[in-house]
């Protein structure tokens, strides 16, 4: 393995359940967390629906994988960028999303928010700063 540390961005643009992309993308994030790269996730377009709170799949016979997002902090994945315009277009605010947190080792394990709402332009700059962008 190379010693080089890269900036990895997972670009999530699809809603959950209708297709498997969101779930299998999350599986890549979990495996990738073991690789010591600098990881962040972007939720854009219908991707914002992936982290909506109150998901209950009991009526459709599919696994509810949304609790896994809450575990990302334990995997040291705590930069979750959510695009403001994508939320607004869908009539959502950050209050409609799950409250995702992580514990900062450097600040005596203080609990911090993982979700950062960013503008479209800010997200464009975030994308520009990456070494690798994964799309699913």
């Amino acid at each position: 393995m190379s010693e080089e540390i890269k900036n990895f961005l997972y670009l999530n643009r699809r809603a959950p359940y209708g297709t498997i992309y969101a779930w299998e993308s999350l599986e890549v994030v979990l495996i990738g967390a073991a690789f010591d790269q600098k990881v962040s996730l972007a939720f854009v377009d219908d991707g914002v629906f992936q982290i909506a709170k109150g998901q209950d799949t009991s009526g459709i016979g599919m696994k509810n994988f949304s609790p896994t997002y809450a575990a990302l902090g334990d995997y040291d994945v705590h930069q979750l960028f959510v695009e403001k315009e994508s939320l607004e277009e869908r009539g959502l605010t950050v209050d409609d999303l799950m409250h995702l947190t992580w514990e900062d080792e450097d600040e005596d394990w203080a609990e911090k928010d993982s979700i950062q709402v960013v503008s479209r332009l800010e997200l464009a700059e975030i994308i520009a700063a990456q070494d690798v962008v994964f799309s699913f």
Binding site: M1, S2, E4, K6, F8, E27, V28, I31, G32, A34, F35, Q37, V132, V133, F134, S135, F136
Partner: peptide, 20 residues
């Protein structure tokens, strides 16, 4: 093989190109 092979490929390569 496992998903780690995708991550490793992205780490080792200079460009990742996704087709979907």
């Amino acid at each position: 093989s496992g998903l780690g092979q995708l991550i490793e490929a992205a780490v080792q390569s200079e460009r990742l190109v996704v087709f979907g």
